[in-house]
Simulated assay, not measured.
Amino acid sequence: MDRPADFKVEDTAAGRVALLTGDWTAGSLGRAADQLAEYLDGAPAGVLDLTGVHRLDTAGAYALVRATGGALKAAELRARPETKRLIDLVARAAQTKKPPPAPRRGFEDMLVRIGRGVINLGADAVGTLAFGGHLLAVTGRNLINPARIRWAACISLAERAGLDALPIVATTAFFIGAVVGLLGANMLRQFGAQVFAVELIGIAVMREFNIIITAVLLAGRSASSFAAEIGSMKMNQEIDAMRVLGVDPFEALVFPRFFALLLTIPLLTFVATLAGLFGGLLVTWSVLDLGPAFFLQRIIDNVGATHFWIGLSKAPVMAMAIAGIGCRQGMEVGGDVESLGRRVTAAVVHAIFAIILIDAVFALIYMELDI
């Protein structure tokens, strides 16, 4: 049964004595500590007698330290040894203060952030090389022994990353082709050369926009999906369980996604080309009154299939970049949801940046080759 905390103060020949009784615990303190502080405010006690205290916990010890204040050190403490140790421990903890924050220096902070950024960039580059080497080794093993390929996972992922993306890719490419045709018709009409809008549409759609639109949409759909799926498995320690069972996560998770995108992105690029040309055809037909037969004939005669093959040649590189970035970011997820969100965001941003960079590199190469 709990005994409420209580005390009494006696004036003796040896000085003022504070006699504490009852249970000085969290549930029994009441206002005893506040009343003790009021009594000792004017004339501190020379002796604190805790021999009558039945139970004492950290809450009671802290209340006692706060009530007596500096008088606790000056007074004679009568208590059991374990009680003294508890009060000393709580008193030291109560006096602990956080160290003052170091003064911030703007230039120094800038240098520290730059240094950390350089270190993180180097570590990221090393991790990318290690990831690429591991994926290359797994790809070589699967090509040597195709029976190791998980065909069911590859086909399922190809359907999700490829066939399910057909509507959005076709719709986006259609409107891009229509916009290019509309802008070309309005600009070239000023010079009486509106017929060349057909060539503008053909070259822009077949050489650049078909693969760019497809890759950007796959970066938003597939790269984020790959990072989220593998990252959630990493959080749930499923990847660690695979390694314990002797299953290579790259062979079970990364390679099927890599293969699925490599398989489907040429098909999506072809569909985007047809949709973009169809959008440009409708615009030239309605705005410039150039019929479909005329449009297609000028595409065949003046544009040709070379630009289409140039655009399609970028597809495998784009697929490798998108799948590799998405899977690598998923493998880097930590154990918390915040890390998962950061990695999914990084997967999309890095993939789009890689797409633009790859397209620029291809443009420079083909310009040097005069193609």
Rank of each mutant, 00 (worst) to 15 (best):
G69W: 08
G70R: 13
P44K: 00
Q35K: 08
A43P: 02
A71S: 15
R80E: 08
L36H: 10
A43I: 04
R80T: 06
V53Q: 08
V65D: 15
T68H: 14
K84R: 15
L72C: 11
A43H: 01
Y62E: 12
A75Y: 09
A61L: 09
G69N: 11
L77H: 09
A61P: 15
Y62F: 15
L77Q: 10
L40H: 00
A61Q: 06
T51A: 13
A45G: 07
L48C: 10
A74E: 03
A45P: 08
V47K: 00
T83L: 08
A61W: 12
T58A: 11
A74K: 15
H54L: 12
L40Q: 05
K84W: 02
T58I: 03
A37R: 05
G46C: 07
A63C: 11
L36R: 02
R80K: 05
L36V: 03
K84L: 14
R80F: 03
Y39V: 04
G60P: 14
V47D: 05
Y62P: 07
A63W: 11
A67G: 11
T83H: 12
A79Y: 02
G46M: 02
G69L: 10
A43M: 00
R55P: 06
K73D: 15
R85F: 09
A37K: 05
G52Q: 03
D57Q: 07
L77N: 06
L50M: 02
D49P: 04
P44V: 01
A67Y: 13
L64P: 14
A45V: 01
T83C: 11
Q35E: 02
T83I: 14
T68N: 09
A63F: 13
T58K: 09
G46A: 01
A71E: 03
D41T: 05
A75E: 07
A71H: 09
L36T: 01
A67V: 08
D57A: 07
L48M: 12
R78P: 02
A45T: 12
R66C: 10
A74D: 12
G46K: 01
H54D: 11
A37I: 02
A75P: 07
A43R: 00
A67N: 14
V47I: 09
L50H: 04
G69M: 09
R78Y: 00
A61H: 06
V53G: 03
V65H: 15
L40M: 06
A45W: 09
A43E: 00
A75H: 10
L72S: 15
D34A: 03
R80W: 04
A59L: 09
A74Q: 14
D57T: 06
A71C: 14
